[in-house]
Design a protein around this nucleic acid. Sequence first.
DNA 1: GCGTTCTCCTAACAGTGTTAGTTAGCCGCT
DNA 2: AGCGGCTAACTAACACTGTTAGGAGAACGC
Lengths: 198, 198
Amino acid sequence: MIDRDGLDGLSMRRLAADLGVRAASLYGYLATKDELLTDLADDVLAGVDTSGFDAGWRTGLTVWARSYREALAAHPNLVPFLAHSPGRRPQALMHADAVHGGLTRAGWPPRYATMIGASTKYLVVGAAMTSFSGGFADDVEVYVGRYPNLSQAHLLAGHEEIDRDSFELALTAFLDGLSRLHAQVVRSASDQTGKGSS
Amino acid sequence: MIDRDGLDGLSMRRLAADLGVRAASLYGYLATKDELLTDLADDVLAGVDTSGFDAGWRTGLTVWARSYREALAAHPNLVPFLAHSPGRRPQALMHADAVHGGLTRAGWPPRYATMIGASTKYLVVGAAMTSFSGGFADDVEVYVGRYPNLSQAHLLAGHEEIDRDSFELALTAFLDGLSRLHAQVVRSASDQTGKGSS
DNA sequence: GCGTTCTCCTAACAGTGTTAGTTAGCCGCT
DNA sequence: AGCGGCTAACTAACACTGTTAGGAGAACGC
């Protein structure tokens, strides 16, 4: 229903009507509309895959980020709600826990693990919000001339392909940067403890 | 007013009352509430700085991303609205144009420029949404034991410091990755045109 | 003085999430 | 069989929301 009519298209009365019931009856099962959305959000996140860390932290992050993004892309209208309260939901916490574990096992110090988990989420949520969630401009001719550098670029934007490509570019660039950092961090950590093992 | 009471705390009647007027009078100046928010959003984005590209694409992106994030952090409650319609607002388009120009001048092909601009926005918007916009959990003891890897990490989350550090980590890792890519892209481009200059 | 214009007003519409209080039916127990 | 209690649905209402239609009063130029 949200997928069809948008987040505002779902009202308690409409949902109740869809179920052949009046609005007040829903409150026997749900305390509040927010709880309903939270439950929906948790369902959406159930498909996210954090199992990739067995094959190393990099593939772990990659698999997580991609499946996370896909889960959001499957229900674009729910993204604004999903994005604004990341903690608190059990599924989200399970994933955060798994990611944190996978990263520390790979040698990342806990603080880095926290930051990397957050950073990756930034990328996914940002991509979800600004791509398929919000619509891009439809009246194209307006900009031509006014924004010289955009005159062709914006034509591409908003299309599924460049959205995904942008996300993939961001992800690999980010992971490339992390790989360099990982070498440094692991080296300096072993310097401190083992005075130069390998 | 939004900063104080949240996005839902602003209603036309309340705003009017604050101005010593009744709600209907506002519609002599504004067509709709959405227009009001759009104007506010544009004001917030006015402080974003895209002038750094004179010192190279990397500093350009850095300055842009940081000032962008700070502009959003200054009005956290407006972020959900700001995030869900990135195109269409004049300020946002001006910035996109400046960024695109700065990147192409630095040798990035137009398609890459578009993707990099989008990617950076992902990072900023994602950081804004999941950090200061949404609140983290407050009842901490609940998780301890249930999510073994998080038991200490989550204590840090939601605090300003780690939010900014995570963002900075993401940004530098992303830019490091881009630097490598830039070398590749520029080389392969000159291979094609000049058969090996520089 | 008159007409125009501008600003604000009241009243209302259609909709929202949510709560109180009530009724109908079913289940198990005596 | 009849009664108590539970469940799930109901109606009605409250306090809101964004928004529009139509009217009242003041200020302006002619």
